[in-house]
Simulated assay, not measured.
Amino acid sequence: MEITQSAALVVVDVQKGFDELDFWGRRNNPEADANIASLIDAWQATGRPIVFVRHDSSKPESPLRQGQEGNDFKEYVEQRRGKGAGAELFVTKTVNSAFYGTPDLNAWFKAEGISQFVVAGIQTNMCAETTARMGGNLRYEVLFALDATYTFDLEGPFGWRRSADELAQTSAVSLHGGGFATVVTTKELVAAAA
């Protein structure tokens, strides 16, 4: 795997509100936060660009709504912001895709000459996957760091219920098998970025 010097790391919605398990339910991948931190460290150490994305929920019951502590980035992310030598962008959004946030992510990528990016963050099958899919549609080379994401058990139509692990696997198969992104591990990315 080759990581270009201009490859961006897109850190999606790593916010305190996702620690409220009474609201979200059972999560998977307890190593995700450590993996996200190591990706940020690797990108900062090599001077590559990083995009920090925050979800500003408009739902009154959401822990991610503005004005609530849950809207803030988790401490390990906040402590790393502004510490790298590479370009950094802060995007806010109210929908799943970081490409529909402010400022315009696609315009920033074009201005910075970015054609490859890595997705990490929360939730695997929601905002992380949607951002990766849109990136693939926009013809970026997208790398999806599956073990640097996590999600929660979810109930859908017809009483169907899927575990967080099942949802993460489904996202990985859809993204990789559908040609939207290449699904990789944190270890592979850190090694390739060195």
Results as ranks from 00 to 15, higher is better:
residue 69 E to L: 06
residue 70 G to C: 08
residue 70 G to W: 12
residue 71 N to I: 02
residue 71 N to V: 03
residue 73 F to S: 11
residue 74 K to G: 01
residue 76 Y to D: 02
residue 76 Y to V: 06
residue 77 V to C: 04
residue 78 E to Y: 01
residue 79 Q to F: 02
residue 80 R to V: 00
residue 81 R to S: 04
residue 82 G to E: 09
residue 82 G to R: 05
residue 83 K to Q: 14
residue 84 G to M: 03
residue 84 G to R: 02
residue 85 A to G: 13
residue 85 A to Y: 01
residue 87 A to T: 02
residue 88 E to L: 10
residue 88 E to W: 10
residue 89 L to I: 07
residue 90 F to K: 06
residue 90 F to G: 03
residue 92 T to K: 07
residue 92 T to F: 02
residue 93 K to H: 10
residue 94 T to A: 07
residue 95 V to S: 12
residue 96 N to F: 15
residue 96 N to K: 15
residue 97 S to N: 12
residue 98 A to H: 01
residue 100 Y to H: 15
residue 100 Y to L: 14
residue 101 G to A: 11
residue 103 P to H: 05
residue 103 P to L: 08
residue 104 D to V: 08
residue 105 L to H: 00
residue 106 N to S: 15
residue 108 W to M: 03
residue 108 W to C: 04
residue 108 W to R: 14
residue 109 F to Q: 08
residue 109 F to A: 10
residue 109 F to N: 09
residue 109 F to W: 10
residue 112 E to K: 15
residue 112 E to I: 00
residue 114 I to D: 00
residue 115 S to P: 00
residue 117 F to I: 03
residue 117 F to C: 03
residue 118 V to N: 05
residue 118 V to R: 02
residue 119 V to N: 06
residue 119 V to G: 05
residue 119 V to T: 10
residue 120 A to W: 05
residue 123 Q to W: 06
residue 123 Q to V: 14
residue 124 T to N: 11
residue 125 N to D: 15
residue 125 N to A: 10
residue 126 M to I: 12
residue 128 A to E: 11
residue 129 E to C: 03
residue 129 E to F: 05
residue 130 T to G: 04
residue 130 T to V: 14
residue 130 T to S: 14
residue 131 T to N: 09
residue 131 T to M: 11
residue 132 A to M: 08
residue 132 A to P: 07
residue 132 A to N: 07
residue 132 A to K: 07
residue 133 R to G: 01
residue 133 R to P: 04
residue 134 M to P: 01
residue 135 G to V: 07
residue 136 G to V: 03
residue 139 R to E: 15
residue 140 Y to M: 07
residue 141 E to M: 09
residue 142 V to T: 13
residue 143 L to E: 09
residue 144 F to T: 14
residue 146 L to P: 05
residue 146 L to K: 15
residue 148 A to P: 13
residue 150 Y to N: 14
residue 150 Y to V: 01
residue 151 T to R: 08
residue 152 F to K: 03
residue 156 G to R: 12
residue 156 G to F: 14
residue 156 G to E: 12
residue 158 F to H: 13
residue 158 F to I: 10
residue 158 F to V: 15
residue 158 F to Q: 14
residue 159 G to N: 11
residue 159 G to H: 09
residue 159 G to L: 10
residue 160 W to A: 15
residue 161 R to W: 05
residue 162 R to F: 15
residue 162 R to P: 02
residue 163 S to I: 01
residue 165 D to F: 07
